[in-house]
């Protein structure tokens, strides 16, 4: 399966899971919102150009927004993590050329610790920005802090489950690109 086709299918699946599974779960608490959809942006291939990365993230966020009827909220957060993603990968990637040897960020391609750092930092940034935009309209400071922490914990748990369930096979490609 080509990478483009794989990502298009992933796009649809992530939106459907987020809208019709995670947002249909009865809320545990006002602070806990189970977000996992942005994992799509984290899983996009290494070789996506930065402009394309941001466009795809914008489109992806906006699609979710139109389902949840808050146009712009998730799109803004997705564009932000798509913009920061290349910087973070440049810092975290351990050996020269891992981003050319493998197709997309994962535990096998980046190593366990760098991948975990990558996921935690982007999840935190995504949730901080999302809750900040909500907090600007209503809520108090306790709501802001509590929601960031609870939502991030929930997101990380869901990401771990997703990583364990869908073991993405990363083929080692040739060094000579």
């Amino acid at each position: 399966m080509s990478i483009t086709l794989k990502n298009i299918i992933r796009f649809v699946l992530f939106i459907l899971v987020q809208v019709f599974v995670l947002h249909k779960v009865p809320p545990l608490h006002e602070y806990v919102v189970p977000y996992v959809y942005f994992l799509y942006v984290l899983w996009l291939p290494f070789k996506t150009s930065r402009a394309a990365l941001m466009f795809v993230a914008f489109l992806f966020g906006l699609t979710l927004d139109y389902f949840l009827k808050c146009p712009g909220l998730h799109a803004a957060a997705c564009v932000l993590i798509a913009y920061i993603r290349p910087f973070l990968i440049n810092i975290l990637i351990s050996q020269e050329g891992a981003d050319t040897n493998y197709s997309s960020p994962s535990i096998t391609s980046m190593g366990w610790a760098p991948y975990a750092t990558y996921v935690v930092i982007l999840t935190l940034i995504h949730n901080i920005y999302l809750v900040l935009l909500e907090w600007l309209q209503f809520g108090n400071f306790l709501y802001f802090l509590g929601k960031i922490l609870a939502t991030t914990a929930m997101s990380l748990l869901l990401i771990i489950i997703a990583e364990l369930l869908f073991n993405r096979k990363e083929k080692f490609r040739t060094n000579t690109v």
């Binding site: 941001m54 803004a76 935009l133």
Partner: peptide, 13 residues
Amino acid sequence: LFLVLQIIALSFL
């Protein structure tokens, strides 16, 4: 591009 997309998203919101 990042700024433009952010401004579009926030203006929608």
